[in-house]
C-alpha cells in the first residue's frame, strides 16, 4: 500500500465511474476458449505455466455466457462459420473479439485454393484486435490481450449510444 498511503482521507476515493468500471473490466478479461486449430495449442501454452495468462486476470471459460472476450484461434471454415456467429451472439455485452493467427485474420496459408475456408473471421463478426503469426507466439497473444486492456480503459460504456 506504499503508493496509496496517506493519500486519501478515511477510505474515500474520488474517481469517475467510467474509470472504475474500465479498471475492473480490463483486469479480468475472461476469454471464451474457442480454439479451432493449431493456434489453439499456442493458446493452451499461453495458459500453462511458462507464459501464465492468469496473472493478467484472463481465465478460460467454456461457456459464451460467462465470457468477455472471444479469442478465435485457428481457421474458420464455412461449416463452422454459422456456429461462430451463433456463439458470438450468445455472449453478453460488453464483448470483444480477438482474431488470433493468420487464418482467422484473412484466411492464412489457405487463401488461394481453400474452397471451404472463410477468408477472415471479420466477415461474420466484428473484430477488435488482430494478432498476426502462424501460429503467433504466446507472448504475441499476451501483447494482444494487453492492447485490448488499453482499448477497454478508453471506453465509456455507461454513455448513451446514439442510434
Amino acid at each position: 500500500m506504499g503508493a496509496l498511503n496517506h493519500k486519501f482521507n478515511e477510505n474515500i476515493l474520488i474517481t469517475s465511474l467510467d474509470k472504475l468500471l474500465n479498471w475492473s473490466r480490463s483486469g479480468s478479461e475472461w476469454y471464451f476458449q474457442f480454439g479451432l486449430a493449431c493456434c489453439a495449442i499456442e493458446m493452451m501454452s499461453a495458459a500453462a505455466a511458462r507464459h501464465d495468462l492468469e496473472r493478467f486476470g484472463a481465465m478460460p471459460r467454456s461457456s459464451p455466457r460467462q465470457a468477455d472476450v472471444m479469442i478465435v484461434a485457428g481457421t474458420v471454415t464455412l461449416k463452422m462459420a454459422t456456429r461462430v456467429k451463433r456463439l458470438y451472439e450468445q455472449m453478453a455485452e460488453p464483448k470483444y473479439v480477438i482474431s488470433m493467427g493468420s487464418c482467422a485474420n484473412s484466411g492464412g496459408p489457405y487463401w488461394q485454393h481453400g474452397y471451404h475456408v472463410l477468408k477472415g473471421v471479420d466477415q461474420i463478426v466484428p473484430v477488435d484486435i488482430y494478432i498476426p503469426g502462424c501460429p503467433p507466439r504466446p507472448e504475441a497473444l499476451i501483447e494482444g490481450l494487453l492492447h485490448l486492456q488499453k482499448k477497454m480503459r478508453e471506453e465509456h460504456i455507461l454513455a448513451k449510444k446514439e442510434d
Binding site: 464455412l78 462459420a81 484466411g107 474452397y115 477468408k119
Partner: peptide
Amino acid sequence: DYVAAEFYRGMRIEKV
C-alpha cells in the same frame, strides 16, 4: 474440373 461457387449461404468464398 471443379469450379468453386462465389457464395455459400451468404458468405463469400474467394478472397477479396
